[in-house]
């Protein structure tokens, strides 16, 4: 069953097309990532899913309901964590949980949720005194309070230190285990690569690629990166003409060749043929970073 369906979405602000024909589907239980640079239209797209904005063209369905027209139905099945939203500074964690729980007919168990998100020691702490990671955990708790089938998380780990970020990631993974569908907006590659089943890369309002993280990486023009310290001087031209080679550069006295599987095979036979010794030889898979930069046409 489809949890979220977006078809031909268009949204224009002040003559600028922010979202320009976006379509995708998210299956139930999937973690679906929307990845893209700032201003790519990520937040506007999810705001249409959340019912905060009405599309100019196209439509959205969340569990079969239209967020623009069926607000009551959608808010019952959809949990939301908004980018840059706050709570009243003097509201305690417990009060926030009580307040938001009162909004739902059948709220989730607050005590259990607080425990799962590590909020139990902070129940009496006021929102203004929470750390960034604690605030984000509280927002996740609020998003889950209505026992939703779909959760939208927008820039979940922006501004968190690496430790807090990892904590939040394992929480999202535990969401998948409980069968909740997650729509995740991010500009962190590592986050998308680790969490998402599929990723839509958004650039200037359009989806430029939609695939699994592995699929996106395989599409990158430079899927492999060879680096080594040459024992004997080596003609850079010989490296540049390797089949599939995309770039050759020197980094800390090591030669770095970016290319494909084919480049790796040709490189190994080149070493053998010329009797070259290559120290600290390393062949690495390109990361999602590389694929992303390819797909969004950003200068590296």
């Amino acid at each position: 069953m489809t949890a979220i369906e977006v078809r031909g979405l268009h949204k224009t602000y002040g003559g600028r097309k922010v979202v320009d024909g976006v379509s995708f589907e998210v299956g139930e239980g999937e973690i679906f990532g929307i990845l893209g640079p700032n201003g790519a239209g990520k937040t506007t797209t999810v705001e249409c899913v959340e019912g905060l904005r009405t599309p100019d063209e196209g439509w959205v369905k969340v569990c079969g309901y239209d967020p623009a027209a069926q607000r009551d139905e959608v808010t019952r099945v959809l949990g939301v964590q908004l980018q840059e939203s706050e709570l009243q500074a003097k509201l305690t964690v417990r009060e926030a949980l009580d307040l938001y729980a009162s909004f739902y007919e059948r709220p989730a168990d607050r005590q259990e949720l607080a425990e799962r998100l590590g909020l139990l020691p902070h129940l009496r702490t006021r929102f203004g005194k929470l750390s960034g990671g604690q605030k984000q955990r509280l927002f996740i708790a609020l998003a889950l309070l209505g026992d939703p089938r779909v959760v939208v998380l927008d820039e979940l780990t922006t501004g968190l230190d690496p430790r807090a970020r990892r904590e939040v990631w394992s929480l999202v993974e535990s969401l998948r285990d409980s069968g909740v569908t997650v729509l995740l907006v991010t500009h962190f590659m590592e986050e998308a690569q680790r969490l998402c089943d599929r990723i839509a890369v958004l650039d200037r309002g359009r989806i430029t690629a939609l695939d699994t993280p592995g699929g996106l990486i395989a599409r990158a023009s430079a899927a492999k990166e060879i680096s080594f310290a040459a024992g004997t001087p080596l003609d850079p031209e010989a490296l540049r003409t390797l089949p599939g080679a995309v770039s050759v550069r020197t980094e800390d006295g090591r030669a770095v060749v970016a290319g494909t599987e084919e480049t790796v095979a040709a490189f190994v036979s080149l070493l053998a043929r010329e009797g070259i010794t290559a120290g600290q030889l390393r062949v690495a898979d390109a990361s999602l970073d590389d694929a992303y930069l390819d797909l969004t046409g950003t200068e590296r």
Binding site: E50, G51, L52, D72, T75, R76, L78, V80, L82, E84, S85, E86, L87, Q88, Y100, F103, Y104, E105, L142, G146
Partner: peptide, 11 residues
């Protein structure tokens, strides 16, 4: 601070 917005995503 987005408190009203946050609330408008609930029932």
């Amino acid at each position: 601070r987005g408190i009203l917005r946050r609330m408008s995503t609930t029932p």
